[in-house]
Design a protein around this nucleic acid. Structure first.
Length: 648
RNA sequence: GCCGAUGUAGCUCAGCUGGCCAGAGCAGCUGAUUUGUAAUCAGCUGGUCGGGGGUUCGAAUCCCUCCAUCGGCUCCA
């Protein structure tokens, strides 16, 4: 007998040779049908693998992370089996489970191209294989034998992978006629995979190396129930409907022009109004936190970036320098604001009493992003950072860091991003040559960040090796309304630039000291943030931010005069109001205003003109009844105040 | 930059196994209607079929090339 300990510490005895599935069966038959994997003493196993010792276990269904992983990984194998049947001679790279589904990188062979049009056919073949309910069989085989097997098959990618594994036994999984190198775990059989959707196809370099062969990556997702797939596809539809590129066009917020150049956003009047309002908001917050607003030009002398080190690191891949016609002096489009700010810091002698110095700038920068990487407003070649650089004494670092965290938390709160995660990026534990600065400084900075985050109650993930070469950082990822994560704000400690620019302050000891720099951008960039805000709100911006707060809809031309009066009145009270005087029926005007996501629709007709009132309709909600314009102004002001409460 | 796909009116899309003057809906304009909470009716305007080159008697349709967009890869100060 073996003793099996369950997650709730309950212990039961079973026969030796029992499997996860058997244990599940002993609890309930329905559970047994759903179990896809089992954690045994901390290791994830197939639910069909025999347990011969005492063990603590946890059963996994599709609804937990481990279960999904096994499910999708098995699905990747299933797809591979289908591909091998459809494309004889196909070679396989890797086929992992990912956050939403799985993919497999394949080399279809010379001259063979798999396109999206082929996906239904592959899906169909997978469904046929599901019907066969082939078991996933685990085998331990010696490395030499496995190598031999894959070599004979001509699986060059697998051979490469196996060669790098340690000697000894290697596990293979086999289902039907398909055998793959794999650690597992896998489903008991293919019959579990009830719903299949292959989503897209893309090129992917073998082992992520652009110098190596580009394989074909096929993305798919599967579920144990058709209804779950339908739900997932529905979510994708929703995401599509929220696409900031689509909404940005519809609401006339921004546009692109091939003639102006790719990746160079043009902010239309409505988008500009939105962005200006966001910037005003930030300016106000930053002013309160002791920032000084500065402005610097869009270009800078090449030497500036040679000094900062950026020229060496990024110069080759940037927009190339422009030259003055007479002297041939080289200037670069500003790729970041910090070097300018460093020069401003150097503009006069600084005393320890002056620190921290905080320079904030909505600085527009230009970076040569690879053409394939451009994406709406989230990845562009010209963008405006909500940038600031704090120059402080080392002893002020932690406090300054905490203040920046405060700003970011406040911004997230005001803009209604309640759900976010943070990541502390530290030096690599082993490989330390790539970092500049002394060990002492690094340790100080890393400790400052961790403590600051901790004291602010942030739950952080710590990632080693993710720090920038010049210092550790703290990144903020927000979750949007439909659960997607977006990387936004960042706070970075920098020992590099103060060194390179030889920044100094005079200490109380009358000696020269080197300040520490903090780079921080709560939004990252205005472009990126507006994109995230659009996707988060689906274009229904909060009242205080939205370009147009209300629109007056006269029932007919007869009430235009009264409507104009109301318009003037509302605008006088700073309610951003439009009017729709088209010869359309009220239903049409309402529809169009709703589609434009205008928060309040003000309807005026005979009744309202008669007794000097307005009829208010709230976007997405409906009729709010009749009231005096004064009353409406109060409602709007109250809502704006509530949304920006702590700002007052 | 790489792989694959796409590019037809301001927008969404049809036509694309080569062949009557390239179509529809919405938007726009004009007129009628004077309207009560998500699309009033009629008429009209509008297109170098992404640009260039080629094949052909004939190209939106086939080929080449460039540009842009989309999905990924790589990159991201």
């Amino acid at each position: 007998m073996v003793k099996i300990t369950f997650p709730d510490n309950q212990v039961r005895e079973y026969q030796e040779g029992i499997t996860g599935i058997d244990i599940a069966k002993s609890l309930s038959n329905s559970l047994a049908k759903e179990v896809v994997a089992v954690t045994v003493n901390g290791e994830i196993w197939d639910s069909t693998r025999v347990i011969n010792t005492d063990a603590s276990i946890k059963l996994h269904k599709f609804d937990d992370k481990e279960g999904k992983h096994a499910f999708w990984h098995s699905s990747a194998h299933l797809m591979a089996e289908a591909l091998e049947l459809l494309y004889p001679g196909i070679r396989f790279g890797i086929g992992p489970a990912i956050e939403n589904g799985f993919y497999y990188d394949v080399d279809p062979g010379d001259g063979v191209v798999i396109t999206e049009g082929d996906l239904p056919k592959i899906e169909q073949k997978m469904k046929e294989l599901v019907a066969q309910k082939s078991q996933y069989l685990r085998e331990d085989i010696s490395k030499a034998e496995v190598l031999d097997y894959f070599k004979k098959k001509g699986e060059v990618y697998k051979v490469e992978l196996i060669s790098e594994l340690e000697d000894g036994t290697i596990t293979l999984y086999k289902q039907g006629n398909f055998t793959d190198l794999c650690r597992g775990p896998h489903l008991p059989d293919t019959g579990h995979i009830k719903a299949i959707k292959l989503l897209s196809i893309a090129g992917a370099y073998w082992r992520g190396d652009e110098k190596r062969k580009q394989l074909t990556r096929i993305y798919g997702i599967t579920f144990p129930k058709q209804a779950m797939l339908d739900e997932y596809l529905e979510l994708l539809e929703q995401a599509k409907a929220r696409d900031h590129r689509k909404i940005g066009k519809e609401l006339e917020l921004f546009m692109f022009s091939a003639k102006v150049g790719q990746g160079l956003p043009l902010w239309l009047p409505k988008g500009t109004a939105l962005r200006e309002r966001l910037q005003d908001f930030l300016k106000k917050v930053q002013k309160r936190y002791g920032y000084d607003l500065v402005m610097t030009p869009h270009i800078g002398h090449k030497d500036l970036y040679v000094t900062s080190g950026h020229y060496e690191k990024y110069g080759k891949d940037s927009f190339q320098p422009i030259k003055t016609p007479q002297e041939g002096e080289e200037f670069m489009l500003k790729p970041m604001n910090c070097p300018h700010h460093c020069e401003m810091y150097k503009g006069k002698p600084r005393s320890y009493k002056d620190l921290p110095v905080r320079f904030a700038e909505f600085g527009t920068v230009y970076r040569y992003e690879q053409s394939g990487e451009l994406h709406g407003l989230t990845r562009v070649r010209g963008f405006t950072q909500d940038d600031a650089h704090i120059f402080c004494r080392p002893d002020q670092l932690k406090d300054e860091f905490k203040k920046v965290i405060d700003i970011i938390l406040y911004i997230f709160k005001t803009l209604d991003f309640p759900d976010f995660t943070t990541q502390v990026s530290l030096r690599d534990k082993v490989n330390r040559e790539k970092y500049i600065g002394t060990d002492e400084n690094w340790e100080k900075a890393e400790r400052a960040i961790i403590e600051a985050a901790d004291e602010k109650g942030l739950k952080t993930i710590v990632e080693y090796g993710e720090a920038a070469f010049y210092g550790p950082k703290l990144d903020f990822m927000v979750k949007d309304a439909i659960g997607r994560s977006w990387q936004l704000g960042t706070i970075q400690v920098d020992y590099n630039l103060p060194e390179r620019f030889e920044l100094e302050y005079t200490g109380s000891d009358d000696l020269k000291h080197r300040p520490v720099m903090i780079h921080r951008a709560p939004f990252g960039s205005m472009e990126r943030f507006v994109a995230v805000l659009i996707e988060h709100t689906a274009g229904k911006f909060p009242l205080w931010l939205t370009p147009d707060q209300a629109i007056i809809l006269p029932i007919s031309e007869k009430y235009h005069e009264y409507a104009e009066k109301v318009l003037k009145f509302l605008n006088n009270y700073d309610i951003r109001t439009l009017i729709d005087t088209r010869a359309e029926k009220i239903g049409k005007k309402i529809r169009d205003a709703e589609l434009k996501r205008i928060p309040y629709l003000v309807i005026v007709g005979e009744k309202e003109a008669g007794d000097g009132t307005i009829s208010v309709r709230k976007q997405g909600v409906g009729d709010q009844g009749t009231m005096k314009a004064e009353e409406f102004i109060q409602i709007v002001n109250k809502e704006v105040q509530d949304q920006t409460a702590e700002l007052q």
